[in-house]
């Protein structure tokens, strides 16, 4: 791997957005994911190369460190921000078909629940890992999920909830989605839920954290 790609991966892992960003202090004054991605394109590297060996390589390490409780939400968000800065340079190339998305992930917080922190984190990580994300927002009804799934065939639906009080809504929504299309894959996440609950309500998978959602998507695509 070239030094430049390695540096991009390091910036994603460390959450170094651009030269001006003060975080992390030990990289102060250095180029960040923003500048380095620009440079990589200028030197003729392909979008796929930068995406796979720079951004994804960095994001994989972020996911692993998050899973291992070495880093937490603030650090992941900084990495996601660095990733977005780099993606801005790559995006124009996606539209031309230079690189394809791995699949579609429909996400929303269930009806009655207006909390979006967890959902946004998962959406950022999933998008950062090469999926198209359809974010339906918060307080989403079963009908909205079902309509979105019809619009995006072969997608995976992710349901989020923060409140114990909206877990029954999650149960209702999963069963409505499965009734509309038994083959529709649904995963769930959120502070009060767990694998046991996923099995109980007929969801295909519980993801304990954003990385879990990414791994699940990778396993079904």
């Amino acid at each position: 791997m070239s030094d430049l790609l390695q540096q991009i991966a390091d910036c994603i892992k460390a959450g170094k957005i651009d030269r001006a960003s003060p975080y992390p202090p030990e990289m102060s004054g250095q180029d960040g994911a923003d500048e380095l991605t620009r440079q990589a394109l200028d030197t003729g590297m392909t979008v796929d190369q930068i995406l796979e060996q720079g951004l994804m390589a960095g994001m994989d390490k972020v996911g692993q460190a998050f899973r291992d409780n070495i880093i937490f939400v603030p650090q992941v968000l900084m990495s996601a921000r660095a990733m977005s800065a780099a993606m801005e340079h790559l995006k124009p190339h996606f539209a031309s078909g230079a690189s394809e998305r791995k699949g579609t992930f429909i996400i929303g917080t269930v009806q009655g629940d207006l909390h979006d922190i967890g959902k946004n984190l998962v959406a950022m990580m999933v998008e950062g890992n090469g999926y198209e994300v359809v974010d339906l927002g918060v307080d989403v009804t079963a009908e909205t999920f079902i309509d979105a799934a019809r619009e995006h065939p072969d997608s995976v639906i992710g349901l989020s909830c923060l409140l114990t009080t909206t877990m029954p809504a999650m149960q209702r929504i999963v069963s409505a989605i499965k009734q509309a299309d038994p083959s529709q894959i649904v995963c769930i996440g959120g502070a009060p839920v767990h694998q046991g609950f996923a099995e109980q309500i007929g969801a295909d998978r519980y993801a304990p954290d954003p990385q879990g959602a990414v791994e699940f998507l990778n396993s079904v695509h």
């Binding site: 603030p74 650090q75 968000l77 900084m78």
Partner: peptide, 10 residues
């Protein structure tokens, strides 16, 4: 808002 998670760094 959730910005706080990044602002604690920045």
């Amino acid at each position: 808002g959730t910005d706080i998670f990044m602002q604690i760094m920045l």
